[in-house]
Write a protein that binds this DNA or RNA. Structure first.
Lengths: 200, 200
DNA sequence: CCATAAGTTGCGCGCCGCGCACATTCTGCG
DNA sequence: CGCAGAATGTGCGCGGCGCGCAACTTATGG
């Protein structure tokens, strides 16, 4: 998973992808949620030092580019849970993994606010969060093992966790809120992951 | 909420909206998930008996039109929960409301499969489901009343329920599945709404 | 029956997604 | 080292789409 593990090509590719995504998000923030239409593909490409044609070898819409960072982060959710000690109870492991994933660098408030409060970005934002669900569900299933009649449990729990993260994000972004993200995250997750779970 | 309650103008408007949405979904199904790009705006408009220009007085993208039906249905989630008896425990009320909402007419499998298994539609599909969350959260909050330290509970629970519905839908659509949707829904919801809840 | 509001449609502009072909750069193998 | 092949970057051009604008048609209320 380390960048060093890939060959040069892949690393360059990833770098360009991030450059474009970063440029797109930055320009979007500058224009604000209402001026998203003013962020032209040409501007994004130029800001990233790349041709417009190359830009859409990587992304097929501005929305996708703007949300690329969130999407990439969500993809790491499964891995984050797997890296928790195997004997940790599910609820604690999930909470710890999510908190680590979403507070290692405290998320950029402006960026998050942009993607969560812009109607045109809403679809991509939800896609970004839902990308965590598949890997998360696999990691949860691995941890609980097969449960009779609970074949839907991992997927549902993953969706619930993703939803809780979204709600926590919305709450964190509200005006005049001073609580750290981790605190809110904990409260939100406790609604679907009882602190003292009798696993299933 | 009855159509009869609105004036003629609103009813016509709603009718054309549904006509366009229906036509869009039908054409999309005909082309299948892989041929979505072949569904031209012109075709949708013509099939709905309306000019292309009018089509995008109602929708600003094909995806939005195709998912209009799901979106409208999701919007009714809050109302469905409110229509349950006030003394019913939260979990039972939610399950009953959701089941009623999603099985009154058994959902069109082809339509659901289309919107849930087409990558280009994924964003709009998620938006459609997430539209249920706001009203649902309000209805849940109304039912539980204020809970100390549980200010996030209604929103998180609403998101979890919406997620469970999505997962249930995915599972229902899997090949060779014969279970009725209601059964799957119940199983999925029970993962986030314990059958015997001590309401916090 | 008329003034006004609401809805529909044609037209035109600028942007965007993308297929295609070519240039450039990286990779693996003899 | 050098070359064949693959992957990537880029220019160009086409067709479709989102949408503002202005004219026209139809419902609404006094």
């Amino acid at each position: 998973m380390n960048d060093d593990a890939m060959d040069l090509r892949s690393r360059n590719r990833q770098a360009t992808r991030e450059a474009i995504g970063h440029a797109a998000l930055r320009l979007a923030i500058e224009q604000g949620p209402s001026g998203l239409a003013l962020v032209r593909v040409h501007d994004i490409a130029t800001a990233a030092g790349v041709s417009p044609r190359t830009y859409n070898n990587y992304f097929s819409s501005r929305e996708e580019a703007i949300c690329a960072f969130q999407a990439d982060q969500s993809r790491r959710a499964g891995q984050a849970l797997r890296s928790r000690p195997a004997d940790e109870p599910l609820a604690e492991a999930v909470v710890a993994a999510v908190i680590e994933l979403y507070t290692d660098p405290e998320p950029d408030k402006a960026g998050l606010r942009m993607i969560m409060s812009t109607p045109e970005l809403e679809g991509e934002a939800l896609k970004a969060f839902s990308m965590a669900e598949g890997p998360l569900a696999d990691a949860i299933a691995e941890r609980t093992g097969p449960v009779p009649g609970g074949d839907l449990f991992p997927a549902v729990m993953a969706a619930a966790v993703a939803g809780a993260i979204r709600v926590a994000g919305r709450h964190w972004l509200e005006e005049g809120n001073t609580e750290p993200f981790a605190t809110i995250l904990r409260r939100a997750l406790s609604c679907v992951l009882p602190p003292t779970p009798r696993d299933r």
